[in-house]
Amino acid sequence: MSVQDYYEKDYYAELGVPKTATSAEIKKTYRKLARELHPDKNPGNKQAEEKFKAASEAYDVLSDNDKRKEYDEARDLIASGAFRGFQGNAPGGGTAGGAGGFDLGDLFRNAGGADGGAGGIGDLFGGLFNRGTAGGSRVRARRGADLETAVTLTFEESMNGTLVPLRITERGTCDTCHGTGARPGTSPHTCPVCHGSGLITRNQGSFAFSEPCQNCSGTGSIIDDPCPTCHGERTVEKTRTLKTRIPAGVSDGTRIKLAGRGEPGLGGGPAGDLYVVVHVRKHRLFGRSGDNLTLTVPVTFPELVQGTTLTVPTLTDAVSLRVPAGTASGRKFRVKGAGVVRKNHTGDLIVTVEVSIPQKLSSEATKALTEFAAATPDDPREAITSAIAAKAGA
Rank of each mutant, 00 (worst) to 15 (best):
S137D: 15
V139M: 12
V139R: 14
R140E: 11
R142Y: 03
R142L: 09
R142E: 13
R143Y: 05
R143N: 04
R143W: 03
G144P: 01
A145C: 08
L147D: 02
E148Q: 13
A150Y: 00
V151W: 03
T152Y: 03
T152E: 09
T152P: 01
L153D: 03
L153N: 05
T154L: 10
F155S: 10
E156K: 13
E157K: 09
E157V: 08
E157D: 14
S158A: 15
N160R: 13
N160I: 01
L163Y: 03
L163N: 11
V164M: 04
V164G: 01
P165Y: 02
R167S: 13
R167A: 08
R167T: 13
I168T: 04
I168V: 12
I168P: 01
I168K: 04
E170S: 14
E170Y: 15
G172V: 04
C174Y: 04
D175Y: 11
D175R: 14
T176L: 11
C177D: 07
C177L: 13
C177W: 03
H178L: 12
H178G: 04
G179K: 08
T180E: 04
A182Y: 06
A182E: 05
A182P: 05
R183C: 06
R183D: 11
R183P: 05
G185H: 11
G185A: 08
G185N: 10
T186H: 13
S187E: 14
P188A: 08
H189G: 07
T190Q: 11
T190V: 15
C191N: 02
P192C: 12
P192G: 11
V193C: 02
V193T: 11
V193R: 04
H195D: 06
S197F: 07
S197P: 09
L199W: 14
I200V: 14
T201V: 03
T201Q: 07
T201S: 05
T201W: 04
N203S: 00
G205I: 00
S206V: 10
F207T: 12
A208G: 03
F209W: 00
S210V: 00
Q214G: 14
Q214H: 13
N215Y: 15
C216N: 10
C216P: 06
C216Y: 07
S217F: 10
S217P: 01
T219D: 09
T219I: 12
T219V: 12
T219C: 10
S221I: 12
I222D: 06
I223L: 09
I223D: 02
I223H: 04
I223W: 02
D224I: 00
D225F: 04
C227H: 07
C227Y: 06
P228T: 09
P228I: 05
P228H: 08
T229D: 15
C230S: 07
E233W: 10
E233N: 15
R234C: 11
R234D: 07
V236L: 15
V236T: 15
E237P: 11
K238G: 02
K238T: 13
K238P: 00
